Amino acid sequence: MSWLSGIIGGGIGAMLGGPFGAIIGAAIGSNIGGGQKVSAGAGRVGFSEAQRRQALFFTAAFSMVGKLAQADGRVCEDEIDALKRISRDALRLDGQTLSYALSVFNQAKSSPEPFEAYAREFGSLFGQDQQMCSFMMSFLFEVAMADGQLHPGEEQMLLSAKEAFRLHDSIYQSLRDRFVGSASPTRVGLAKHFEALGVSEEADVAAIKKAYRKKASEFHPDKIEGKGLPPEFIKLANDKLAEINASYEALMTAHKAA
């Protein structure tokens, strides 16, 4: 049973409460639940903690994106098209899941709750797991940069999310560099690869290998999914693992050449 079938059939939104519970209830009630043939008891039977976290993570993502799209004061067709493209190409959402995502987006967009309320709620739910917070921030950056630029209002929201998620400054800056571009013209060479592995530029081969094994284990998609990352977001884990592998190869090559 998928997390989406569970919340449609089990009324999980009403049981959760808070901003995301309200959004889930409204999104399911608006149009996604009408054609879904799931019995009322199906969602309550065997709805695991992992599926609950998946439902919350997914709802939080598109709730915050709904507010992020309004950062410049309005939501334009280009932003809607970009969201659909990311949902289709990057997340590979099926038709029903995309319908739910857009319902969440629209409910959050018209909600009186500010972006910061959703960010704080996510931080209270996932703040103890910085991997999950890092994945969420990656998604927010990807959507914010869909039009090729980071607007001041968007960056202000992302910074408020960083605080709400209790995300370390270095992680935020690394993601900003990745999606927006490095703000420091002096940052060259292998520095980004040392940063990706979380080691200093003075680290020896043994330290680099140890850091790589730890990072690769942390970001293995199977392990991430078990912690509550929705399957639709596993591509972000794959991208992070590819980045870690590339950084390790670059540092090993540099050491061999030295």
Rank of each mutant, 00 (worst) to 15 (best):
residue 4 L to R: 01
residue 6 G to P: 04
residue 11 G to N: 11
residue 13 G to N: 06
residue 13 G to P: 02
residue 21 G to W: 12
residue 27 A to K: 03
residue 30 S to K: 14
residue 35 G to A: 10
residue 37 K to H: 11
residue 37 K to I: 15
residue 38 V to K: 01
residue 40 A to G: 15
residue 49 E to K: 10
residue 55 A to I: 01
residue 61 A to R: 08
residue 67 K to I: 02
residue 69 A to L: 08
residue 77 E to F: 06
residue 79 E to P: 04
residue 80 I to N: 05
residue 86 I to D: 01
residue 89 D to W: 13
residue 90 A to Y: 00
residue 91 L to R: 03
residue 101 A to V: 00
residue 103 S to F: 09
residue 104 V to L: 01
residue 117 A to G: 05
residue 117 A to M: 13
residue 118 Y to H: 10
residue 121 E to I: 04
residue 123 G to I: 00
residue 130 Q to M: 07
residue 132 M to I: 12
residue 141 F to Y: 04
residue 143 V to R: 03
residue 146 A to R: 07
residue 151 H to P: 06
residue 152 P to F: 02
residue 153 G to P: 05
residue 153 G to M: 05
residue 158 L to D: 01
residue 160 S to L: 12
residue 160 S to E: 13
residue 165 F to R: 00
residue 166 R to W: 07
residue 171 I to G: 02
residue 174 S to Q: 13
residue 184 S to Y: 07
residue 188 V to G: 13
residue 193 H to Y: 15
residue 197 L to M: 09
residue 198 G to F: 03
residue 199 V to K: 03
residue 203 A to D: 00
residue 213 R to Q: 15
residue 215 K to H: 15
residue 224 I to G: 06
residue 225 E to G: 10
residue 239 D to K: 08
residue 239 D to Y: 11
residue 245 N to A: 14
residue 252 M to R: 14
residue 254 A to E: 09
residue 257 A to K: 11
